[in-house]
């Protein structure tokens, strides 16, 4: 059985003892089967890993819509503020825009890394801000859990009360270019 051939769902790809089942495949009764239509690929295992079996996967030609996974950085728009959390609507996962609506929640303890019990949500975010956050878990049934507790995470774009796009001044404040007024935010350090 050679790689670089197309497979359809239900086709046997090999023995589960010889291969690790990668994306697009599943294991049943000690055999690895394809679960989607696509190109068969074999990836040898990394040299430092104990399990030396190559990974077998079936990759699709058509891309599926982006879905937030734990560990990925997402771009979200703050929708509501509560005393101990902020609700956000996830717009992009990495560089790809999502096709369907996803909700995320940033809890008080995940806003920043230091002094997490003294965080005030209103001095960190405002509704309408665009933030970069990391997905820490799939969360509960209502929303993903997001965190902005790293230097490069936080507010990347906000509009001031006067309606202009604000400029970051420090990691705590952003300034309006028209009125000069400074507003508190948890600012992302974007290089």
């Amino acid at each position: 059985m050679s790689a670089n051939e197309y497979r359809t769902p239900g086709e046997v790809l090999g023995w589960a003892s010889e291969y690790v089942a990668g994306p697009g495949t599943y294991v049943w009764h000690e055999k690895v089967y394809a679960s989607v239509v696509g190109l068969l690929r074999l990836t040898p295992a990394a040299t430092d890993v104990e399990d030396q079996r190559p990974t077998i996967e079936v990759t699709r030609e058509k891309e599926r819509g982006a879905v937030p996974e734990p560990g990925t950085v997402v771009t979200a728009k703050i929708t509501k503020l509560f005393p101990r959390q902020a609700a956000a609507s996830i717009v992009c996962v990495g560089p790809r825009a999502v096709r369907d609506k996803f909700t995320g929640i940033i809890r008080q303890q995940d806003v920043r890394a230091t002094e997490i019990d003294k965080v005030d949500m209103h001095t960190s975010f405002r509704p309408g801000d665009i933030v970069r956050a990391e997905v820490i878990s799939l969360g509960d049934s209502r929303a993903y859990y997001l965190s902005t507790a790293k230097n490069e995470l936080g507010v990347v774009s906000a509009t001031s009360d006067a309606g202009a796009a604000m400029v970051p001044v420090s990691w705590q404040e952003m300034q309006c270019p028209i009125t000069g007024q400074r507003e508190p935010r948890k600012v992302a350090k974007v290089i």
């Binding site: 359809t8 769902p9 239900g10 697009g24 599943y26 049943w28 089967y33 679960s35 989607v36 239509v37 699709r60 058509k62 599926r64």
Partner: peptide, 11 residues
């Protein structure tokens, strides 16, 4: 379903 890329046991 195959066009949508939804993983299936078999066709």
């Amino acid at each position: 379903l195959a066009d949508a890329g939804i993983p299936m046991r078999d066709l």
